[in-house]
Design a protein around this nucleic acid. Sequence first.
DNA 1: ATCCAGGATATCT
DNA 2: AGATATCATGGA
Length: 312
Amino acid sequence: MVKMQLDLASRTLSLDGTLSCGQIFRWTKQDGWWLGMVDGVPIKMRQTGEHLEVESSSPVAESRITRFLRLDDDLDSILEELSRDDLIRRVFADVRGLRIVRQDPWECLISYILSRNCSIPAIEGTLNRICRRFGERVEWGGRILHRFPEPDSIFSAEPMGLVGCGLRYGRRQALELKEIARLVSDGVMDFNALRRMPYEDARSMLISFDHGIGRKVSDCVLLFSLEKLEAFPVDVWVSRAVAELYQGRLNPELVRRVRGGSRLTAKDYDSISDFGRRLFGRYAGYAQEYLYHWVRLRAGVHLLQTSRQASE
DNA sequence: ATCCAGGATATCT
DNA sequence: AGATATCATGGA
């Protein structure tokens, strides 16, 4: 057991908000501690006052935690730059200390491919079952955890084994996951290369890989794992938030469709995403995540599962 | 039981 | 190109 304490000092952080808002799916809170993995190493974290307490099974460089939580971002400056109007200022005030997390691109990509048309608890359940069945077992403190499976492990998986984990779209989706795993394993899909590309180019390339990667999945992977903070993913919640706050600046027909609960067309996605990016600029993704968390909090979505098992 | 959820794609006009 | 039909699970 290795213990470490990070001095947050002036670095604003809400660990609860950051890990419970629905950007990342495999962290759970138990007895006041967040339990999860960073680079395959089991980690426990707890925020107490000005400090972040970190416990791990083996030594972890402080810089890895700092990178994971994007504590290298000057959050206050970013939010100040994003404060275009009083509406978004109020959202920032209601959702304090939320940070975008730096996820592993492979895990992030698979997570969002199978997130489509699913609720967050369902995504968590499916991911946990996939890790339990295909990921490496790790024991820590009498607890059994599972790493996220390597690409080769998914590539060589039996399709029905994946389907049995609860995929929303069955065998078709299992074949998608296997194909993506092959592309990653063969280096055809090169996350480091994508990270170096401009947002628009990386997004076009990701979408061109197909097999379950569309606009939304691309934007999530780019924002949460590939350093593209201008990405503005749009789901039903973000569309509701934007349609509510900025109804006067959007196509009235689009606002009506969002309010009526009808599904978003590809064109609607582009309208809202482009609007967000134009309004907020290089840190639009941060504004998006605050909007997402804000509407869900206000709708009374409960974010912390208390009784469900993480991964055994 | 019913309803909804961090959508993508094949198949039309 | 742009609209729409289809896919078909788990959790609240």
